[in-house]
Each structure stands twice: as structure tokens, then as C-alpha cells.
């Protein structure tokens, strides 16, 4: 059978990549590039750069980009600044909730190497060790033009198929998992989940 389909009983996720539809892959890539839905998750200083992007002056809706509050529908995860371990937990959970293919764009120097917080005890220095990043924009804080440029870059990478963070995450899950566990300690997911159970 040319169809690969494995149902994981634990998480109820259906993964499928239909080989028959490979011909349509360029079309889907074009559609993915033209309709990036942003998961509205603002950390650090960069969240304030999003309103000018969304409003009349730069208007990212021209490229079909739309803020979307639900991670299930999101494609593009903007990490807009420094990440503390506490935020990183939420980022990882949200990222895993999003559905493949998904992309990460980071703003500023902080997610790359800690930026001005290079010697802080409470900032994640190298975000790339915990989740796969597709495009990083350097600068403190990158201006809106730079963010626009980053978005163009990720659109180009999506079309050429270079933006494969979601695939890297799936393939090197052990590596990322190991780094995450080193930071938070084993079993942090279960602990987090228990705290939220009261709300559900």
C-alpha cells in the first residue's frame, strides 16, 4: 500500500502522507506559503512589533497572514523575544499542539544566543536546542521592516522546501526531548498537565 498511515493510540493523532497526492505537493507548498496563520503567542519585547505589522502601514494580511488564536489551526509560531524556562514549557506544549507542517520564526538576538541576557540565570540561551527554528531575525529589537524581511524569507523557504523544522522535530525527537528534560527535569509534562486538569 502506498499510503502511510500510523495511528498512535496514545495521542489520537492521525499522521498521513498520501503518496498519490505527491503531484499536488507544489500546489500545497504554494498554498502554505500564501496562507500562514500566526499563533498569537507573544513573549519578550517583540510582541509590540506585531500591531504595526498588522495595521495599515505594513499590513501583513496582504500575504494572507492572519493571527489565529487557536494553535490547532496555526502554521507560523512567532517567538517574539527572550524565553524564560517557564515560557519555554508553554512554547513546547503549544508547538506540539500545532499540526504539521508548522514553522517557527524567532525575533531578536535573545532566542539565538541570549542577547543582552547572556549571563542571566533565568533566560534560555539557545532556543534551537529545545525546539527547531526555521528562521531567526537578529537585532535588538528588529524593526518591522526586518520582521517583514524574515517573513519573506520563511515564505521563500516554505516554497523551496527548506523550512522543515517540523520534520526535524519528528526525526530528532529524542535529542530535543533529552535537552528539554535536562532543563525541566524528567516528567515535567505530566506535572504540567496535572496542574491544568482542574480546569478541564
Amino acid at each position: 500500500m502506498s499510503e502511510r498511515r500510523d495511528v498512535n493510540e496514545n495521542d489520537g493523532v492521525i499522521h498521513y502522507e498520501l503518496q498519490e497526492f505527491q503531484v499536488f505537493e507544489p500546489l500545497f507548498r504554494w498554498a502554505r506559503k500564501k496562507s500562514l496563520w500566526i499563533v498569537a503567542f507573544c513573549t519578550g519585547c517583540g510582541g509590540i512589533e506585531i500591531p504595526p505589522l498588522a495595521t495599515a502601514r505594513y499590513d501583513y494580511e496582504r500575504f494572507g497572514i492572519m493571527p489565529n488564536p487557536s494553535p490547532r489551526m496555526g502554521d507560523l509560531f512567532l517567538i517574539t523575544g527572550y524565553v524564560t524556562p517557564k515560557t519555554l514549557k508553554r512554547i513546547i506544549v503549544t508547538y506540539e499542539m500545532m499540526q504539521d507542517p508548522k514553522y517557527i520564526l524567532t525575533h531578536g538576538s535573545c532566542p539565538i544566543n541570549g542577547g543582552v541576557y547572556w549571563d542571566s540565570y533565568n533566560v534560555v540561551k539557545q532556543l534551537d536546542k529545545y525546539i527547531p527554528i526555521d528562521v531567526s531575525i537578529a537585532g535588538c529589537m528588529p524593526r518591522v521592516e526586518a520582521v517583514m524581511d524574515g517573513i519573506m524569507e520563511i515564505m521563500r523557504k516554505i516554497e523551496s522546501g527548506e523550512a522543515d523544522g517540523w520534520r526535524r522535530y519528528r526525526e530528532n525527537y529524542d535529542y530535543y526531548r533529552k535537552n528539554q528534560d535536562e532543563l525541566f527535569g524528567e516528567g515535567w509534562r505530566e506535572k504540567e498537565a496535572k496542574r491544568w486538569l482542574a480546569w478541564i
Binding site: H15, L27, A31, S35, G64, R72, M73, D100, P101
Partner: peptide, 18 residues
């Protein structure tokens, strides 16, 4: 644009089911 959005949603590689 809505057509592109729908196409993209169809092209997603996984779907959560409950």
C-alpha cells in the same frame, strides 16, 4: 484568499481527532 486557506488546510499532514 479563502480558497488558498482551504487548500492549505487540506494539505496539512496531520489532523487531531477526538
Amino acid at each position: 484568499q479563502p480558497l488558498i486557506d482551504t487548500l492549505k488546510l487540506l494539505g496539512k499532514k496531520e489532523s487531531i481527532s477526538h
